[in-house]
C-alpha cells in the first residue's frame, strides 16, 4: 500500500466523516415497504418487574424513513422500551410487530437478523477487538460461514469475507473511523467509540436503527455534528429511533416525537406540537435546567 503518511496533515482529534460514501441498506431479500408505512408497531406493551411497572400500556408506531425521537425524564422507560423491542425483555402483556410479523419470543440475535439494530447508552463495544473487527461482527450477522467453510477456505467463506470487509470499511469511512480501523476499540477516544457503536449497528444492515443517547457526554459542537450525521444516515435510507435527553437537539433532528413519563406515553406528535404540549412541559418541569434545555 502506498504511504500517504509521509506528508501527513496535522493530526486531528476526529477523523473526517465521509457522508458521501454509499452505505444504503443492502437488499437481502426480506420484505420491503414503502416510505411512510408502518415499520414497527409497539402495541399496548406493559412490562412489570415484580411490583414495579416499567412500561404501562405503551403504543406507538415507527414509519419507514423517519427519525422518531423517544424522549422523557430519567427513569421514564425509554431504554426499557428499547430492550423490549430488541428482545432483551419479554413484555408482560402486549407485543411488538416488525414489518408485519410479531416478534413474539424470538431470540435477540434473530431479531437483529430481522432488521432491528441498536447501540447502548453505556458503550458496550468488544473492547479487545479492533474497530474493524467490531464492525465485521455486525456484518457477520447475515453470514453463514461455519467451521467447515472457514477451514477449507471454501468460496462461501471467501466471498463473505470479501464483501464483509469492503462493507465494514465503507461504514468506518462513513463514520470517519477509517484511520482507526486497526486499533483496539478500548483505545479509541470516547467520541470515536460512540460512532463505532453506530457503525457496528449499521453493519447488521438494519431496517430500523435504534440509538440510545448517542450524544451522551458530547459537547454542544460535537452534538450538532452527530445530529447531522444521524440525518445523513437517514438520508441513505435508514429509519432511526433516537433516544435523547437534550430536548433542543431532538427538536432539531426528528420528524416526530414520542414522550414517555413513568412508563406511560404522555404525548406524540411533530416537534412543534410537542414543544407546546402542556403535559410535556409539566413532565420536564423540575427536571434539571441542563437536561430540559
Amino acid at each position: 500500500m502506498p504511504e500517504p503518511t509521509m506528508n501527513m496533515p496535522e493530526p486531528e482529534a476526529e477523523g473526517i466523516i465521509h457522508t458521501e460514501v454509499d452505505i444504503t441498506p443492502l437488499d437481502l431479500g426480506g420484505p420491503t415497504i414503502a416510505d411512510g408505512e408502518k415499520l414497527l408497531e409497539v402495541d399496548d406493551v406493559t412490562l412489570r418487574f415484580g411490583g414495579v411497572v416499567a412500561l404501562d400500556g405503551v403504543s406507538f408506531d415507527i414509519r419507514k424513513g423517519e427519525i422518531l425521537g423517544l424522549i422523557g425524564p430519567n427513569g421514564a422507560g425509554k431504554t426499557t422500551c428499547f430492550n423490549v423491542m430488541t428482545g432483551v425483555y419479554q413484555p408482560t402483556s402486549g407485543g411488538v410487530r416488525f414489518l408485519g410479523t410479531a416478534l413474539g419470543r424470538r431470540k435477540k440475535f434473530a431479531i437483529t437478523k430481522l432488521g432491528i439494530a441498536r447501540t447502548f447508552q453505556n458503550i458496550r463495544l468488544f473492547a479487545n477487538m479492533t474497530a474493524l473487527e467490531n464492525v465485521m461482527v455486525g456484518v457477520d450477522a447475515h453470514h453463514t460461514t461455519g467451521v467447515i467453510s472457514a477451514m477449507f477456505r471454501l468460496p462461501k467463506h471467501r466471498s463473505e469475507e470479501d464483501t464483509g470487509y469492503r462493507r465494514a470499511h465503507e461504514l468506518l469511512r462513513f463514520m470517519g473511523l477509517d484511520r482507526r480501523a486497526d486499533e483496539l476499540a478500548r483505545n479509541l477516544p470516547y467520541g470515536d467509540q460512540r460512532r463505532l457503536e453506530i457503525a457496528r449497528a449499521l453493519a447488521t444492515n438494519p431496517s430500523l436503527l435504534c440509538l440510545d443517547e448517542p450524544a451522551a457526554g458530547f459537547n454542544p459542537a460535537e452534538k450538532i455534528r452527530l445530529m447531522q450525521l444521524i440525518r445523513s444516515i437517514r438520508d441513505q435510507g435508514y429509519t432511526v429511533l433516537l433516544i435523547e435527553h437534550d430536548m433542543k437537539l431532538v427538536m432539531g433532528v426528528t420528524d416526530r416525537i414520542v414522550v414517555l413519563e413513568f412508563g406511560r406515553k404522555i404525548a406524540e406528535g411533530a416537534p412543534a406540537e410537542i414543544r407546546d404540549n402542556p403535559a410535556v412541559i409539566a413532565a420536564y418541569l423540575g427536571v434539571d435546567e441542563e437536561d430540559a434545555s
Binding site: 432483551v88 435477540k108 440475535f109 437483529t112 458496550r124 461482527v137 455486525g138 450477522a141 447475515h142 453493519a203
Partner: peptide, 8 residues
C-alpha cells in the same frame, strides 16, 4: 449480551 444483540 452485546454480541447477541449484534446478531451472534
Amino acid at each position: 449480551d452485546a454480541a447477541e444483540l449484534m446478531g451472534v
